[in-house]
């Protein structure tokens, strides 16, 4: 069962530029779905279309098993959202923000204090938001998305502008929310950050999904594309010795070799040493989600 199901979605701001191009994606219920893409890839447009702020020109969107086009506004009682920077009224404090939202959402104002406590803003509840730091604003934005205890949370760049502590705090809250059974769609361009918390991943480029699946399937894909870099005294000779591995020369004393598993590393080094080639350094190249993302999007460009 999917909390969000998008089929063949197309959206363009003008005839010349298509932002979303036949996009299909599915966010399973109970998942933390990492929605990855470089700036301008179409993440925010997708989210705004899902929330009904932009009208889909083609395709269909189902939210919580209801077709968005046919859904009544009450569907938004089950959805919480934070789109980029939170919408805050500088002259109001945190309690007043949640009071007005309680009116819109039709929930008791008794939920305000626990929600503020959850995001760590209870002590700052009476401070005007104009005096809040970026992190506090982001946490209040999250509180606003959580006030009515939604089943589905759509968070667009929720850790944007946060320091490492702020990112850790938001991450903890998101993981807690998943434990409570909520579905979370999380978009970000901080790829390494998503890797730590998501269960599913969708990678978007130029309005098309390049990859969609579980984090595990992504990691399997990742393990088949690991690279090590060797600094040696004789690059040409080393390249000949290692010709049974995909490789490329990095510079006059370094060669990069692709391996499918870390178990191949000792054997590979042995081959080079047996050929009397000096090795000064062996480095396993960082190959996280970010590298994979770059690889995937580069492949598409090529």
């Amino acid at each position: 069962m999917n909390a969000i199901q998008i089929k063949n979605l197309t959206y363009s701001y003008s005839k010349k530029k298509t932002i979303l191009n036949d996009l299909s994606m599915a966010v399973p219920k109970g998942s933390i779905y990492g929605f990855l893409g470089a700036n301008g890839a179409g993440k925010s447009t997708t989210i705004r279309t899902v929330l009904g702020l932009l009208k889909a020109q083609k395709g269909s969107i189902h939210l919580l098993d209801t077709r968005l086009k046919d859904a009544s506004r009450s569907i938004f009682k089950r959805i919480g959202s934070l789109i980029e920077a939170p919408s805050l009224y500088a002259h109001l404090n945190a309690v007043e923000h949640l009071q007005l939202l309680a009116q819109y959402q039709g929930v008791s104002t008794k939920t305000i204090a626990p929600t503020l406590d959850r995001v760590g803003l209870l002590v700052h509840q009476k401070k005007p938001t104009s005096a809040y730091s970026t992190g506090m604003k982001q946490r209040l934005g999250l509180a606003m998305a959580l006030l009515h205890d939604p089943e589905l949370l759509i968070l667009d760049e929720p850790v944007n502008g946060l320091d490492p502590n702020g990112i850790t705090e938001i991450r903890k809250i998101i993981l807690q929310l998943q434990e409570e059974g909520k579905t979370i769609l999380l978009s970000s361009h901080l790829l390494a950050e998503l890797e730590r918390i998501v269960s599913h991943v969708g990678i978007l480029q130029d309005g098309k999904l390049q990859f969609e699946g579980t984090l595990q399937s992504l990691q399997e894909l990742k393990s088949g594309q690991q690279w090590i870099q060797i600094r040696t005294g004789d690059v040409q000779h080393a390249q000949t010795i290692l010709s049974n591995y995909p490789n490329e020369v990095v510079d006059h004393n370094q060669v990069k070799v692709q391996i499918s598993s870390e178990d191949q590393i000792p054997n590979l080094i042995k081959q080079v040493v047996n050929a009397n080639i000096s090795i000064y350094e062996v480095q396993v190249l960082k190959n996280d989600l970010e590298q994979l993302f770059i690889n995937l999007t580069q492949q598409e460009n090529e």
Partner: peptide
Amino acid sequence: FIERRANAWKYLYTMPLT
């Protein structure tokens, strides 16, 4: 202007009311 300054339309229009 109160809404515009807070960039609040994107939030207001995801509320469960028309």
